Amino acid sequence: MNKQRATDIAASPVMANVTYQGVSVYIQHVDEDNETARIYPIGHPEEEEEVPLNGLIEH
């Protein structure tokens, strides 16, 4: 996923269908300099992690 789209999704109040390694995730924050995103699986905010943007897929 490109960083502008990831930033738009993170800022939007509308939930987008995004997955990371086949798991639906919520994007909390995008680090444009490092091209990473802070995400967590839907319903599991305790499993927060930093992942590369190129691993995120919008459906």
Rank of each mutant, 00 (worst) to 15 (best):
Q4D: 15
I9K: 02
I42L: 10
P52D: 09
H44Y: 15
E58P: 08
R38V: 08
I57H: 13
P45I: 14
G55Y: 09
N17V: 11
Y26S: 04
E48T: 05
T19W: 06
P13N: 13
Q28A: 07
V51E: 02
I9G: 03
A6S: 05
P13G: 10
E32R: 06
M1K: 01
T19S: 12
P41S: 04
A11H: 15
S24M: 10
I39W: 02
A16S: 14
R5Y: 04
T7R: 14
T36S: 11
S24R: 15
T7Q: 15
A6I: 08
E50I: 15
R38M: 05
E58R: 08
Y20V: 02
E49Q: 10
E47H: 07
M1A: 12
H29P: 02
V14E: 13
G43Y: 11
A6M: 10
I9Q: 01
E48N: 03
E50V: 15
L56T: 01
Q4H: 12
E32Y: 00
T36R: 12
N2E: 11
T19C: 07
D33C: 00
P13I: 04
Q4G: 00
P41N: 04
R38D: 03
V25I: 13
R38Y: 03
A10Y: 08
D31R: 01
Q21G: 02
E46N: 01
G55C: 06
E32C: 01
M1R: 03
V23C: 00
Y26K: 06
P52T: 00
V14C: 07
V25P: 02
G55D: 09
A11M: 14
A10C: 08
G43F: 10
R38F: 04
T19E: 12
P41I: 02
M15V: 11
H44S: 12
T19Y: 09
Q21D: 06
N34K: 15
I27Y: 08
V14N: 09
R5C: 00
Q21A: 05
L56G: 02
L56K: 03
I57A: 11
A11S: 15
M1S: 10
G55W: 10
H44V: 05
T7Y: 12
V51F: 02
E46I: 00
I27R: 06
P52G: 02
V25M: 03
I39D: 05
M15S: 08
D31P: 04
I39A: 02
E35P: 01
K3E: 14
N54A: 07
Y20K: 01
V30Q: 05
Y40Q: 00
N34D: 13
N54R: 12
E46D: 10
A16C: 10
V18G: 08
P45H: 10
G22V: 13
Y26A: 03
Q28D: 13
N34S: 09
D8S: 14
P45S: 08
G43R: 03
E49H: 04
E58Q: 15
D8M: 14
Q4K: 12
P13L: 08
V18D: 14
E32H: 01
L53G: 04
H44R: 15
A37H: 04
H29T: 05
Y40K: 01
